[in-house]
Design a protein around this nucleic acid. Structure first.
Length: 577
DNA sequence: GCCGTTTTCGGCCCGACTGTTTTCAGTCG
C-alpha cells in the first residue's frame, strides 16, 4: 500500500513547514498523514475508481493534497517535498526523534554547524559546539546527548505494531505456496515482545529451493544477505531483517521451540533435559543418539515433564516452575474482551462520530464501548469542558435509546480521559465527573517531576472517588521516552488500596503498563483494563497488542475488568457516582 | 491547506514547561 509511504512524506512535509515557521499548514499535512495512515482502502484504488474527486472525499484531503497524492501515484515522487529536501538536506526524522529536538532546533543546527544527521549531532554535542550557540546552552547540550543515547539504545528494534502486520503478510504468502506444508513465525515476534529485532520464519517444504527463491525475490526485499538450501536472510525496504529456515518435519517442533526462545527460557529447558540425561537442541530431544521428540513442541515439552507453555510466557520468569507445578495461568484471550473503554470521538478532535464508533465496536463483537474524550486542559486535543461533556453525554443517551429501540444489546458508556494536574487534582468538576459512567485520568504534562512529587500527584488522583482508571500509568513512549518518575511498587499499592484500575494501553508506542509491571500488578491484586486509546475506528484493532502485553504479564480473565460483562464492570467502578 | 447545521473567508494550534534569557523561543501533549 502506498498509503503509508505518502503519509510519511506528508508527515515530513509538516515538519519542514514547522521548521519554516509556517502556521496552520503543518497541522493540515499532519492531519492528512494521520488519515492516510489509518485508511482501510488504498489510495491507489480510491484514485483509480474516483480520480481526484475520490481523493478529495477523504477527510483532511483537499485540492492541494489530492494533487500531491495524484503526483505520487503517477511519478513516485512529490516535487514539493523534493524541493524541501534540496533546500534543507537533513535527516529530519532522525534528528527530531531525539527528545527535546524539534524542527526549529534542527534547522538552526544545520545552518550554524551543518548538522545533517544523528552522528554529526552527537559529535557536535560531545565536543561542546552546541552549548555556545544562541538559544542553546549547557543543559540543552546535555539533554541532546542523553536523548541520543536513548534513541541509539532502541535503534535496530521495531515496534511490535510496526512489524506484526508485515510478518502476517509474509506468513500468509508463505503458507499459500504449494511447496510449503507448514510455516510459522518464531523469535521474539512469536513471544509478542513489545519491540522486535528481526523476523524469523520456519517452514516445512518438500522443495526448499522454490521456497527460498520466493523468499529472496519478494518485492520488498532490498538486500539478500544469503541464500542457501536451508536458510536465507534478507533485508526489507522497511529496514527489517528476515530469516527463513526450512526444517525437516521430524525436527520442526524442536526448531520452533529453539528459535522462539527466549534464550533464558531455552537455557532453563536444556538444564531440565540435562538433569534427565537428555540433550535438547534445535534438531530434537535426544537420549544418547536416539531422538525421542522433535516433530511438535508439545512432545518436546511433554518428554521434559511439562505441559506446552504459551510463547508469551517463555522468559524464564517462573513459567517453568509453574508448568512443573501445574499452575500455569489461563491467559486472557482477545475473544474474552467485552468492550473498549478508551476511545476518542470527533468531539475531542478524533475522527469518528460516536455512532460510527458504536457501529465499529459492535462489528468487533463487543457488548459495550466507552467514549473517553480528552478534557479541557488538553486544548491541543480539543479537550472538552463541562458544558461540552454534558452535550456529548446527551448525544450518547440518545444513541443508546436508539440502539435499545432497534433491539441491539449494546451500550455506549460515558467516560472521559481527564487530566491529572500537577497537584493531583482533576480538570473537571466533581459534579460533572459524577454524571459519567466511568472516569479515566492520565498525566499529559510535567513529566520530569521528581519521584516524590509525582507519587504524591498520583496518590491524590487515585484517592479521588471519581477516578476509576489511570491511563498509560508510566508514561513511557517506546523508542522515544523513558517512563516518568513512577515508583511502580508504590503505585500498585495505592491502586489496590483505592480500588483504582490501571490501564494496559494497546497503542503500539505505549504498551503501558508493560509486561513485567502487569505481572507485578497481578501479584499485588490490582485489576487492569486493556484499552486501545483509539483516535480512529481502525485503531480499535490495536487491542491485540495490549492483549499480547497482558498475556506476557500472566494476566487472566479475572484480572482484566473489560473481560467482564457490563453489569459486573459497572459495579466495580468507584461508588463516588 | 482544510473546512462549513453560524462561515466559501477566516478560523484552526492552546498552555505549560524548560532552558534560555531578562521577556521569550522551542518543544510537547
Amino acid at each position: 500500500m502506498k498509503n503509508h509511504e505518502i503519509a510519511r512524506i506528508f508527515q515530513v512535509i509538516a515538519e519542514y513547514l514547522e521548521m519554516e515557521g509556517v502556521r496552520f499548514k503543518p497541522y493540515a499535512y499532519q492531519k492528512a498523514a494521520l488519515t492516510l495512515e489509518n485508511l482501510k482502502d488504498s489510495v491507489e484504488d480510491i484514485y483509480n475508481q474516483g480520480g481526484l474527486k475520490g481523493l478529495k472525499a477523504i477527510p483532511g484531503v483537499g485540492e492541494s493534497i489530492a494533487q500531491k497524492i495524484e503526483e505520487y501515484l503517477n511519478t513516485g515522487k512529490i516535487e514539493y517535498y523534493e524541493e524541501f529536501r534540496r533546500k534543507l538536506p537533513i535527516d529530519l526524522d532522525a534528528l527530531i526523534a531525539v527528545e527535546g529536538m524539534g524542527p526549529k532546533k534542527a534547522k538552526m543546527l544545520f545552518e550554524k554547524l551543518g548538522i545533517t544527521n544523528l552522528t554529526e549531532l552527537e559529535e557536535a554535542a560531545r565536543s561542546h559546539k552546541i552549548a555556545p550557540l544562541k538559544g542553546f546552552g549547557d543543559k540543552t547540550e546535555a539533554n541532546i546527548i542523553e536523548g541520543i543515547e536513548f534513541v541509539k539504545k532502541s535503534t535496530g528494534r521495531f515496534l511490535l505494531g510496526e512489524v506484526l502486520p508485515l510478518a502476517d503478510r509474509v506468513l500468509a504468502t508463505l503458507r499459500a505456496l504449494p511447496e510449503v506444508q507448514r510455516a510459522d513465525v518464531a523469535g521474539s515476534l512469536r513471544r509478542m515482545k513489545e519491540t522486535i529485532g528481526d523476523l524469523d520464519f520456519l517452514a516445512i517444504s518438500s522443495q526448499p529451493e522454490k521456497v527460498m527463491d520466493f523468499f529472496v525475490s519478494q518485492p520488498e526485499v532490498v538486500k539478500v544477505y544469503g541464500r542457501g538450501q536451508t536458510k536465507s536472510s534478507v533485508r526489507l525496504r522497511q529496514g527489517v531483517d528476515m530469516d527463513l529456515r526450512v526444517i525437516p518435519p521430524g525436527s520442526y517442533g524442536a526448531a520452533l521451540q529453539y528459535f522462539s526462545g527466549s534464550k533464558e527460557h531455552n537455557i532453563a529447558l536444556r538444564q531440565i533435559a540435562i538433569d534427565k540425561d537428555y540433550k535438547l537442541n534445535e534438531y530434537g530431544l535426544f537420549e544418547g543418539d536416539r531422538m525421542i521428540a522433535g516433530a511438535t513442541e508439545e512432545e518436546v515439552y511433554a518428554k521434559l515433564g511439562l505441559p506446552w507453555i504459551p510463547p508469551e510466557l517463555r522468559e524464564d520468569r517462573g513459567e517453568i516452575q509453574a508448568a512443573q507445578a501445574g499452575t500455569l495461568p489461563t491467559l486472557i484471550r482477545l475473544e474474552d474482551i467485552r468492550g473498549d473503554l478508551h476511545v476518542h470521538s470527533a468531539w475531542d478532535g478524533g475522527v469518528n462520530s460516536i455512532a460510527e464508533i458504536a457501529q465499529a465496536a459492535m462489528a468487533l463483537g463487543y457488548e459495550y464501548v466507552g467514549i473517553s474524550d480528552h478534557t479541557q486542559f488538553l486544548r491541543i486535543e480539543h479537550g472538552l469542558d463541562e458544558k461540552q461533556l454534558r452535550q456529548r453525554n446527551r448525544e450518547i443517551d440518545a444513541l443508546n435509546e436508539k440502539l435499545r429501540r432497534a433491539g441491539k444489546h449494546f451500550t455506549v458508556l460515558k467516560g472521559c480521559e481527564a487530566n491529572i494536574m500537577n497537584d493531583g487534582s482533576i480538570d473537571i468538576t466533581d459534579e460533572v465527573l459524577a454524571e459519567l459512567d466511568y472516569v479515566i485520568a492520565g498525566i499529559h504534562s510535567t513529566f520530569r517531576m521528581p519521584r516524590v512529587e509525582m507519587m504524591a500527584r498520583l496518590r491524590t488522583a487515585m484517592n479521588n472517588p471519581h477516578v476509576d482508571i489511570i491511563a498509560h500509568p508510566t508514561g513511557r513512549i517506546l523508542k522515544k521516552r523513558e517512563e516518568y518518575e513512577v515508583a511502580v511498587g508504590e503505585l500498585l499499592k495505592i491502586a489496590r488500596e483505592t480500588g483504582t484500575i490501571l490501564e494496559i494501553n494497546s497503542y503500539p508506542e505505549r504498551l503501558d503498563l508493560g509486561d513485567s509491571n502487569i505481572l507485578a500488578a497481578k501479584r499485588t491484586g490490582v485489576k487492569m483494563i486493556i484499552n486501545t486509546d483509539a483516535h480512529h475506528i481502525d485503531q480499535l484493532r490495536y487491542l491485540p497488542y495490549g492483549i499480547a502485553q497482558a498475556r506476557r504479564g500472566w494476566a487472566e480473565k479475572d484480572d482484566i475488568v473489560n473481560a467482564w460483562g457490563l453489569k459486573k464492570f459497572l459495579e466495580f467502578m468507584k461508588p463516588g457516582r
